[in-house]
């Protein structure tokens, strides 16, 4: 009974804050943009060979469908691997650095130095070391994701309520239990903030890296479309990049809501 009731309350709340109508208002600016685009085409501000009509771009999705899917999957898999590695490395490191002051003293300056280097500026070096292909791209995405994940994890650990650590100390809890049952869950909301930034940064980086260091992926596809003079494919590529960026962000948010369900009703963000 209690559970059914709570479920009902939760559903109601979700409906009110994210009712379909309320959500769809987010599409209005995008629709406006497409209309302005169409108007620009009809006014012939640019010759049609440079600025294709929306219909032609839509048609490009049919015409080059196989290409687009193939390159999208190539880009996606690189981001998933690169960010996955950044997560596996950055989060445990962040938990430890946040937990132990001496590790923080040891690494703080290095972290602050390296995180200021834009991953894109490392493309030439990555190509020298790893050649052309998946490896340099993945390394760059890894670096793009590592710093936000690391820094947000450290920050999350720092926000743990003091009393909770006292409870653990008084109970004689071992370090492994403290990290697993207290530090990790306490930092999880911040880790998701880091993941959100990492996924965004990784997606930006993959497209850029593919324009230079790889021969597949959406970045490569766009550049290639320019060289073979297919502007409608350039536009299609840009739309796919934007749409996937949006969907990836949705996915991370969704995941956060599931993993941090205990936060529901506790913070404004938790709703």
């Amino acid at each position: 009974m209690g559970r059914v009731h709570r479920h009902a309350v939760r559903l109601t709340r979700r409906f009110m804050s994210a009712s379909p109508l309320g959500r769809l208002t987010g599409l209005l600016p995008l629709i406006g943009l497409i209309l302005a685009w169409q108007a620009a085409v009809m006014a012939q501000i640019y010759p049609p060979v440079l600025l294709p009509a929306p219909v032609r771009v839509a048609n490009a999705f049919v015409l080059y469908g196989g290409d687009i899917v193939h390159n999208t999957l190539a880009s996606l898999s690189r981001v998933v691997i690169g960010i996955g590695l950044a997560f596996v490395v950055g989060v445990p490191m962040g938990l430890l650095i946040g937990r132990f002051a001496w590790l923080d003293r040891l690494f703080d300056w290095s972290i602050q130095t390296f995180r200021s280097v834009p991953p894109i500026s490392l493309i030439p070096m990555a190509m020298l070391f790893f050649g052309i292909g998946d490896t340099p791209a993945i390394v760059l995405i890894f670096l793009a994701g590592l710093w936000p994940l690391l820094l947000n994890t450290i920050f999350g650990v720092r926000t743990i309520e003091r009393t909770l650590l006292k409870v653990a100390a008084a109970a004689g809890a071992g370090e492994a239990l403290i990290l697993r049952d207290i530090v990790w869950p306490a930092a999880l909301p911040s880790i998701f903030t880091g993941l959100r930034l990492a996924v965004g940064g990784g997606w930006l980086t993959v497209v850029t890296a593919e324009m230079i260091a790889v021969k597949s992926g959406l970045g490569y596809m766009i550049l290639n479309a320019q060289m073979t003079f297919r502007p409608e494919l350039i536009f299609a590529g840009i739309i796919v990049i934007g749409a996937i960026g949006l969907l990836a962000d949705f996915a991370v948010q969704r995941l956060r809501r599931i993993a941090c369900s205990w936060q529901e009703g506790l913070t404004v963000q938790g709703r």
Binding site: A186, C260, W262
Partner: peptide
């Protein structure tokens, strides 16, 4: 503890 020190998760 005064502020009970319960783990919210």
């Amino acid at each position: 503890f005064q502020d009970h020190g319960l783990f919210p998760w």
